[in-house]
Measured scan of single mutants.
Amino acid sequence: ELVLALYDYQEKSPREVTMKKGDILTLLNSTNKDWWKVEVNDRQGFVPASYVKKLD
């Protein structure tokens, strides 16, 4: 499943990933309501769920 980055996000820990507004990311896990695991540029990590939106 793919998600769209709604905002820029700068990683604050090694478990997170940086994304730019408009990026298309692969959603790996959305079981946590606050932090979703995504893959971007061959890196996996977490981003705030409120910063991304699922693409239909």
Rank of each mutant, 00 (worst) to 15 (best):
L6S: 03
L27T: 01
S50F: 09
N32Q: 11
K53C: 13
K12T: 12
Q10D: 13
D42Q: 10
S13D: 11
L6C: 06
R15A: 12
K12F: 06
T26D: 04
S13T: 13
K12D: 06
L2V: 08
L55C: 11
S13A: 10
I24D: 00
F46D: 04
K20D: 04
F46A: 02
G22W: 06
K53P: 02
R15T: 12
P14V: 10
S30V: 07
K21N: 05
N29I: 08
A5Q: 01
A5E: 02
N41L: 14
S30R: 09
K20L: 09
K20G: 04
Y7F: 14
Q44I: 14
S50Y: 09
F46K: 02
W36T: 04
G22I: 02
D56L: 10
P14Q: 11
V17P: 01
W36H: 03
K54Q: 08
L28C: 06
D34K: 13
L2K: 15
R15S: 14
K20I: 08
K20R: 13
E16L: 05
K54A: 08
P14W: 10
E1L: 13
D42M: 12
M19R: 01
D42S: 13
A5R: 00
K37C: 13
K12L: 09
N29Y: 07
V47T: 01
K12I: 07
D34G: 08
P48F: 03
L25K: 00
D34W: 15
E39K: 12
S30A: 13
R43G: 04
V38F: 00
V38Q: 00
E16F: 06
S50M: 12
S50T: 11
L4A: 07
Y9I: 01
G22M: 03
L25V: 07
Y51F: 13
A5C: 12
E39D: 08
A49R: 09
V52K: 01
N41G: 15
V3L: 14
G22Y: 05
L6V: 08
K20E: 06
K37P: 01
A5G: 03
I24N: 03
V52A: 02
K21Y: 06
Q44K: 10
K53E: 12
Y7A: 11
A49Y: 03
G45I: 06
D56F: 11
S30E: 14
K20Q: 11
M19F: 10
L2I: 10
N41F: 13
E1W: 14
K54P: 10
V52G: 01
L27M: 04
P14M: 09
N29A: 10
D34F: 15
E1S: 14
M19I: 15
K12A: 11
D56H: 13
E11Y: 05
V47L: 02
F46M: 09
Y7P: 00
V3W: 09
K12Q: 14
E11G: 15
Y9K: 00
L27V: 07
Y7C: 12
L55H: 07
R15I: 14
Y7I: 08
V38M: 01
K54S: 07
L28R: 05
W35V: 03
D56W: 10
T31K: 11
K54E: 06
K53S: 11
D23H: 05
K33H: 12
W36R: 01
E1I: 15
N32F: 09
L2D: 03
N41W: 11
T26H: 12
F46L: 09
E16H: 06
A49V: 05
D8A: 07
S30N: 09
D23Y: 05
L28A: 03
E16T: 07
T26E: 08
V52R: 01
V38S: 00
K12P: 04
K54L: 14
E11H: 09
V38G: 01
D34Y: 15
W35F: 07
G22T: 02
Y51V: 05
P48E: 01
T18G: 09
W35D: 01
S13P: 04
R15M: 14
A5W: 02
L6N: 03
L55K: 05
D34R: 12
M19S: 00
V17R: 01
M19A: 03
Y51K: 07
D56Q: 11
S30C: 11
K21T: 07
R15W: 15
L27E: 00
K54C: 08
K37R: 11
L4Y: 11
G45R: 01
L6A: 04
S13M: 08
T26R: 15
Y7E: 10
Q10I: 15
Y51Q: 05
S13Q: 08
T18E: 05
K33E: 11
E39Q: 15
N41V: 11
R43S: 07
L25R: 00
T31W: 09
N29K: 07
A49H: 04
D56N: 13
P48C: 04
V47P: 00
K33D: 11
L4Q: 12
P48A: 02
V3K: 00
Y51S: 11
L27G: 01
N29S: 13
D42P: 06
Q10E: 14
Q44N: 08
V17N: 04
Y51N: 05
K21F: 05
K21D: 02
V52M: 06
E16Y: 05
D42W: 07
K53I: 15
K20P: 00
L28H: 05
E1D: 12
V17K: 01
V17T: 06
Q10K: 13
Q44V: 14
L27N: 00
L25I: 08
R15P: 06
Q10R: 13
S50Q: 11
Y7M: 12
V40W: 08
D23N: 07
R43M: 06
S30H: 09
V17F: 14
T31D: 15
K33V: 11
E1M: 14
R43D: 04
E11S: 15
Y51E: 03
E16N: 05
E1V: 14
L2C: 08
P48M: 04
R15E: 12
T26I: 15
D34P: 02
V40Q: 15
V40E: 03
G22A: 03
S13Y: 07
E1Q: 15
G45V: 04
L28D: 00
G22S: 03
